[in-house]
Design a protein around this nucleic acid. Structure first.
Ligand SMILES: Nc1nc2c(ncn2[C@H]2C[C@H](O)[C@@H](COP(=O)(O)OP(=O)(O)OP(=O)(O)O)O2)c(=O)[nH]1
Ligand SMILES: [Mg+2]
Ligand SMILES: [Mg+2]
Ligand SMILES: [Zn+2]
Length: 591
DNA sequence: GCCGTTTTCGGCCCGACTGTTTTCAGTCG
C-alpha cells in the first residue's frame, strides 16, 4: 500500500462525504490528511505496521482516526468507511464534479431529482432541457453545464512549469502594451515554482484607485490575448479566461495600496493562506487580499489597512518573516520560522560548477571546446564532462579507449587554461550506466582514473523494486561512484519513476557519503523537492546539474535551483556551490 | 476529523462572481 494509494483513498472519502453534505471541516480533515500522506517520503503503511498507528499521529493533521485508517489500509488493503460510502453513493457521481461550476451540492441535487450519475446522463438531461426544471437551476446553468462537460476530461491536467513559462512570457508581453497597468506579477503555483501548474494566475496593480474604465481597459486587453476562446467570468476585480489549449488564466486587479496583500493572497498556496489568516485572526486581525485590518474594522478599504502595500508588511503584521514563494506550501515553514531556522535559500548565482553534461562524443550537440567556452560564458568555475558509457549504444556511448582519449583531450584543455592563467577547470567525468544485471558498465580500473563518476540507470527501468534497489545500492557502494543521477527516472507528465525506495537510497547515500543529483531538466527535476528535503534531513548533499546536451543546455539550471529552493535547500546543502577544491572528488581522500 | 500558554469543546480563512433568488447559495480563487 503506497502513500499515493492511501492519499487517493482519503481524497475519495472527502469527495464522497462532501457529496453527502457532511461537515465541511471533516471533509477538510481528510483532504489535509491526504496531502500529508502524499508529501511523506517514507512509507506510512510500513510505519503503521512496524511501529503502530500511534507513530503516525506525530504528523500534523493525522490524528487517531486517520492513523488507524492508514493501519487498516496497510493490513487489509481495504478501508471500511470508504467501502460503506461507496455503497451509499452511486458510482459515477464523482465524475460530475469534474465539470467546471458543478460542485457537490448541485451534483447531489441532479442525482436526487433526475438520477444523474454520469457525464453522459448529465449531457442527455441538459439536451432534453430537464436540468432547468430542477430547483436552483435555470436555463443559463443548464447551458453552462452542457458546455462545461467538454472540459471535464481535461480537468486536473497540469502543465510543466517551463511550458507555462512560455505562456507567461507571451501574456506579459501582450499586457505590457496596456498603460493602465502599473505593475503586474504572475502569482499562484507559477510564482511558487511548482514543477507543474494547474492554471496561471496574474495580479495587476491598476494604480491609486479602482477606476472602472481603467479596469475595463485591462480586462479587454486580457480578453484579447492570443488563444483566448472563452471568458469564464468577468466582474469588477477579477476575470478568468480559457485558452484554446484548455489552460485557464485568472486575472486579479487591485489598487496599489493592496498590491502586497493581494500578491500574498494570490501566491498561495491555499493551505499556506489558511494558516496565515488563522494566525492573523488569533492576533485580533483580519487578513484578506485587500490588506491586514483590525478584526472588527467595518470595511476592507486598503487605505484603512494596518499593512498591505507590500508582502513584507503583511507578514510582519502577523509576526512572520517574508517567506520565499517557493516555501509557501504549509509544509513546515511556519515551525521553521518560529524556530529561527528559515535560512536563505540557494540561488542560481551560488552555483560555481555544473557536474553533468554531454558532448558530441556521445549524444551531445556541442564539442568539448564549445561546452567549455559556454560554461565560462555563464560564469561557472568548473564543469565535469560526463558522456554516456558504452552500454548506451543509442547515444554511441564511450568504451574505455574512447573515454581515455576524451580524458587526454580534457587534460590538454586544462593545460591550455592553466597556461592562459585561467582558473576554470574541466573534470574528467563519465555518466556510467548501471547494468541491467547490476554492476557498472566500465571496469573499475577505468573508473578509478576518473575525477567524477556519475552512476545512472537507463536500461531495465521496469524491473522489480528489489532488482532496481540492488542495482542502485550497488552503485552507491562502488568506491569510484560520486553520485547517482536522476535517481528516480521519472519524466514529468510522461513516465512514472522506477519502482524504487528513494528513502532507502538516501539512507545508503548518507552511509557511504555519496551525493544525489537534482537533475535540472524541467522534464525531470529528479530528485524532486520532497526527496531533496528528505536528503537534506539526512545530511546527504545535493548536486544541481544541467545534464546539458548543447551549449544552451545550461539554461535549465534555474529550474533545478527553483526546485531546490522548494526543498528548502541553502547553498551549503548544494555541493556544486562549493569551490572546486572543496568538492568530494575521487582520490581526494574524502569519504 | 484535528487540535490546544486563550481552549479537551468549539472553533476551523475570507472574499468575488454567477444565477436564481426576492435575500443568498454554490462554486471558485
Ligand atoms: N485564502 C484563500 N486563498 C485561496 C484559496 N484558493 C486559492 N487561493 C489563492 C492561493 C492560490 O495559490 C491562488 C491561486 O489559486 P489556484 O487555484 O490557481 O491555485 P494554485 O495556483 O496555487 O495551484 P494550481 O497549480 O493553479 O492548481 O489563490 C482559498 O480557498 N483561500
Ligand atoms: Mg494557479
Ligand atoms: Mg487560479
Ligand atoms: Zn475602513
Amino acid at each position: 500500500m503506497t502513500n499515493r494509494e492511501i492519499a487517493a483513498a482519503f481524497d475519495t472519502i472527502a469527495d464522497l462525504l462532501e457529496f453527502q453534505g457532511a461537515n465541511p471541516f471533516r471533509v477538510r480533515a481528510y483532504r489535509n490528511g491526504a496531502r500529508k500522506v502524499k508529501d511523506a517520503t517514507q512509507s506510512l503503511a510500513a510505519i503503521a505496521t512496524d511501529q503502530g498507528a500511534s507513530a503516525l499521529t506525530e504528523l500534523d493533521g493525522i490524528g487517531k482516526d486517520l492513523a488507524e485508517k492508514i493501519l487498516e489500509l496497510a493490513e487489509s488493503g481495504r478501508l471500511s468507511l470508504l467501502d460503506e460510502l461507496r455503497e451509499q453513493v452511486a458510482p459515477g457521481v464523482l465524475e460530475l464534479l469534474r465539470v467546471p461550476g458543478l460542485g457537490p451540492k448541485k451534483a447531489a441535487a441532479l442525482h436526487k431529482e433526475l438520477g444523474i450519475a454520469s457525464l453522459e446522463q448529465l449531457k442527455a438531461a441538459c439536451e432534453a432541457e430537464q436540468v432547468r426544471a430542477v430547483k436552483g437551476f435555470g436555463k443559463k446553468t443548464e447551458e453552462a453545464l452542457l458546455a462545461g462537460i467538454a472540459h471535464a476530461a481535461a480537468a486536473g491536467e497540469r502543465l510543466r512549469w517551463a511550458d507555462a513559462d512560455l505562456v507567461v512570457a507571451r501574456l506579459l508581453e501582450h499586457l505590457d502594451a496596456e498603460p493602465a497597468i502599473q505593475r503586474r506579477e504572475p502569482a499562484g503555483s507559477y510564482r511558487r515554482g511548482k514543477e507543474t501548474i494547474g492554471d496561471l494566475d496574474l495580479l495587476v496593480d491598476i494604480g491609486p484607485a479602482m477606476l472602472p474604465d481603467r479596469v475595463a481597459r485591462v480586462m479587454d486587453r486580457f480578453g484579447d490575448f492570443e488563444g483566448v476562446t472563452e471568458t469564464i467570468a468577468r466582474g469588477e476585480t477579477k476575470m478568468s479566461v480559457r485558452l484554446e489549449s484548455g489552460l485557464q488564466i485568472d486575472l486579479r486587479i487591485v489598487p496599489s495600496d493592496a498590491f502586497g496583500a493581494a500578491l500574498q493572497y494570490f501566491t498561495g498556496s491555499k493551505e499556506h493562506n489558511v494558516e496565515v489568516r488563522g494566525r492573523a485572526k488569533a492576533l485580533g486581525l483580519r487578513l484578506n487580499e485587500w490588506g491586514v485590518f483590525p478584526a472588527d474594522h467595518p470595511d476592507n478599504d486598503p487605505a484603512h489597512a494596518v499593512a498591505g502595500r507590500d508582502e513584507a508588511s503583511v507578514y510582519a503584521a502577523i509576526k512572520l518573516p517574508l517567506f520565499p514563494p517557493e516555501r509557501r506550501e504549509a509544509r513546515g515553514e511556519f515551525a521553521e520560522a518560529e524556530a529561527g531556522e528559515l535560512a536563505p535559500l540557494v540561488e542560481l548565482s551560488d552555483l560555481r560548477g555544473d557536474l553533468h553534461m554531454h558532448t558530441s562524443a556521445t549524444d551531445g550537440a556541442a564539442t568539448l571546446d564549445e561546452m567549455v567556452a559556454a560554461a565560462q560564458e555563464r560564469g561557472l568555475e568548473y564543469i565535469a564532462i560526463t558522456d554516456h558509457s558504452q552500454r548506451v549504444t543509442m547515444a554511441h556511448g564511450l568504451d574505455p579507449e574512447r573515454l581515455r582519449a576524451q580524458w587526454r583531450e580534457i587534460d590538454r584543455v586544462n593545460q591550455r587554461l592553466a597556461d592562459e592563467g585561467n582558473a576554470f577547470r574541466v573534470l574528467r567525468g563519465i555518466e556510467c550506466d548501471i547494468l541491467e544485471a547490476g554492476g557498472m558498465d566500465l571496469p573499475d580500473d577505468v573508473l578509478a582514473e576518473a575525477d567524477w563518476v556519475i552512476a545512472s540507470l537507463h536500461y531495465g527501468q521496469s524491473q522489480t523494486r528489489a532488482k532496481i534497489m540492488a542495482r542502485l545500492l550497488g552503485a552507491i557502494a562502488h568506491p569510484a561512484v560520486a553520485i547517482i543521477a536522476h535517481p528516480t527516472g521519472r519524466l514529468i507528465n510522461k513516465r512514472p519513476p522506477y519502482d524504487l525506495d528513494v528513502d532507502e537510497l538516501i539512507a545508503a547515500a548518507a552511509e557511504h557519503g555519496k551525493l544525489l543529483e537534482l537533475n535540472a531538466n524541467p522534464l525531470r527535476l529528479d530528485l524532486d523537492d520532497q526527496h531533496c528535503a528528505a536528503a537534506k534531513a539526512r545530511g546527504v548533499g545535493i548536486v544541481i546539474s544541467s545534464d546539458a546536451h548543447s551549449v544552451s543546455g545550461f539554461g535549465v539550471l534555474r529550474h533545478g535551483v527553483q526546485q531546490a529552493r522548494r526543498a528548502g535547500l541553502t547553498a551549503a546543502d548544494v555541493a556544486n556551490t562549493r569551490p572546486l577544491a572543496e568538492l568530494p572528488l575521487a582520490g581526494s581522500g574524502q569519504k
